[in-house]
Design a protein around this nucleic acid. Structure first.
Lengths: 347, 347
DNA sequence: GAAATCTTCCAAAGCGCTTTGAATGCCCAT
DNA sequence: ATGGGCATTCAAAGCGCTTTGGAAGATTTC
């Protein structure tokens, strides 16, 4: 039933060598024969068996992603789909496939060791790096090509990464609110053992300090970035003694929860209270059509996936290359969720 | 550097046969030797090369998913992550990996042909079936094991599927609203060439008909299920001559847009206007904590992924098996977004 | 005590490809 | 004529595993 090299070459009256070479574009084969081979391959719908090819070439033509199941629960990162979409755009361009390994937090190290030993992938993308992430030294030791989406504070060994300038973007967002007259600014952050969340907080804190605004730990909340979390924390703060007049949210989904709490409290976002969120520019959750719903620090995670994938392939093709380090800047888009601190809401 | 069977067996002074058998649990090997082999394998961190193993056994131990890039744009389905998360739970239980192929709509047929010819997967999951989906006959012809997440109206050939009873759940939701006194009920549906959306409309229409409520095509909207779409359509309808007093939304994300439009219009959801949405129970977008935000037809897409994956493996292990057909029922959870039709909003 | 039966292990073939090293035929310079 | 150079093609080895078909000893059976 299934066509293979042997049968195809018999069909053509050629050796396997010649057929293989013809199909792979080697120069030492007559153009006429090459055409003949191509036609026959087409006709019999022949494609080289990928496992056999991989075995012979020593390349899997496969990239591994370890699904970043959130540390705490069974949560799948909402950013996952778009990131993968972007990455796969790049992979397919170069003939790579992508595979996924899922894993509890416990044995993630083993997954990498296994991917390496089984030789099932040519490289991996490391997502969701933590502060001081142990996976980086491990991957360096294993010698499996990889690239990190984000960075890891505290790791001194060199490694390749692509990251958004989280610190600067949250610093700018905070300054923007300060310029509008806000002084009680809350941060509804992601989990702060995640490196990106840590950096965002640094940006926020630094902006406040530079402007001489006191840091109030009651206004700094941190947890998994769900809608419910945004709602809960916002409601809590609004019911407190010194409610914030502005809120920085970690993601669109969190921001939606923030908005829900604001509206439940009978306030109007953008008038009574300002909100800025980070926006990953998710395909299924656009920040409004023309005018953005939320003022936001925007950076496409899909594009990030594409960039990371491209660089990973470079690293695979050029082993021993000096590490790639690439910083992406988020843009600050101004929407309808921010406004000046008014008498009514100023403290 | 890399350990392989040959080296390992030399190290042990055994034949490759025996080592292979010891590791794979065959009975014809002495328990003492088996232990010795296991220890050595552990020590040298040996794992069989997956491509070589696949070549020898004829099984890829890999399942293919074709990323359902939405027909129109570059949108990645928000449900993707959770579905995959569930599926991979099942795969890892049976030692399967999963891979992704991304594809423009044009050549999706070729992707399947290629997966088959390259023998890179043992089976595939077909997501997002359309009405009259041509991929089903194709896959039947190819003889590649597969299972469909959903069904395809108009296809008469047998095929395996797992689906939510979309028609019934939307029928029930509609009846629920009618019971509350609503008669002007809008449907903000997904794209209706998608089979699930088609069935939901059928359920909606049938409920209205059975209760003798006229169908108003101005209240039936259909597009990709984004937040912006929900907002846009709702605003449009609320500004019309005969605004609806209740809205059925196709997904949580759409419903969030619906709510935004309602609030912008100065109305209060659950009091002035009722909303029911379908809720896929996404891990990152829970429908509230204790009391649901939205009254909803709920069905976990993560669980669906798990079930589908499990059945696909059955189909792979038992070729020629009679097709699997499994219907899941959504539950109707009552939240704060629905209430009786009042004088104020009744038409 | 010889034949039959287990138990335990092994050599070698085969999975479907790529690639090395060599062979064949042809043309041109010597 | 003769041999070098070039363009084409091929046979066979090798990638790392599983599995078939023995084989050698140990054990049992009559």
């Amino acid at each position: 039933m299934a066509m293979n090299l042997k049968k195809l070459s018999q069909e053509l009256g050629l050796s396997q060598t010649t057929v293989s070479r013809a199909l792979n574009g080697y120069p030492e084969v007559n153009e006429a024969t090459r055409q003949r081979v191509r036609l026959a391959a087409e006709k019999f719908n022949y494609r080289p068996n990928s496992r056999a090819k991989g075995l012979a070439t020593g390349r899997a033509m496969m990239i591994g992603h370890v699904i970043p199941t959130s540390t705490q629960h069974e949560m799948v990162n909402p950013v996952f789909g778009d990131f993968v979409g972007g990455a796969s755009d790049a992979y397919s361009q170069f003939g790579y496939d992508m595979m996924f390994a899922r894993v509890g937090d416990l044995d993630e190290a083993n997954v990498y060791r296994e991917l390496k030993a089984k030789r099932s992938v040519d490289g991996v993308i490391l997502q969701g790096p933590l502060v001081d992430d142990a996976r980086i030294p491990l991957l360096n030791k294993l010698g499996l090509p990889y690239i990190v989406h984000g960075r890891s504070t505290g790791i001194s060994e060199p490694y390749s990464w692509v990251d958004v300038n989280n610190k600067r973007s949250f610093q700018r967002a905070t300054e923007f609110l300060i310029d509008l007259g806000h002084t009680r600014i809350a941060l509804v952050n992601g989990l702060e053992h995640m490196d990106f969340a840590r950096r965002r907080r640094e940006g926020y804190v630094q902006a406040l300090k530079q402007r001489g605004i006191p840091i109030d730990s009651a206004l700094m909340r941190s947890a998994e970035m769900t809608e419910v979390f945004g709602h809960h924390q916002t409601r809590d703060m609004l019911q407190g003694d010194h409610p914030p007049t502005a809120i920085l949210a970690a993601s669109m989904i969190t921001a939606i929860g923030v908005r829900r709490a604001i509206e439940e409290a009978g306030l109007k976002m953008g008038r009574d209270i300002s909100v800025i969120t980070h926006d990953d520019d998710l395909s299924y959750l656009k920040n409004g059509q023309d005018v953005p719903i939320f003022t936001a620090t925007r950076s496409s995670v899909r594009k990030a996936g594409e960039i990371l994938a491209g660089h990973l392939i470079e690293l695979i093709n050029e082993p021993g290359r000096t590490p790639i380090e690439k910083m992406l800047e988020a843009e600050l888009v101004v929407g309808r969720s921010t406004g000046p601190a008014t008498q009514g809401n100023a403290t």
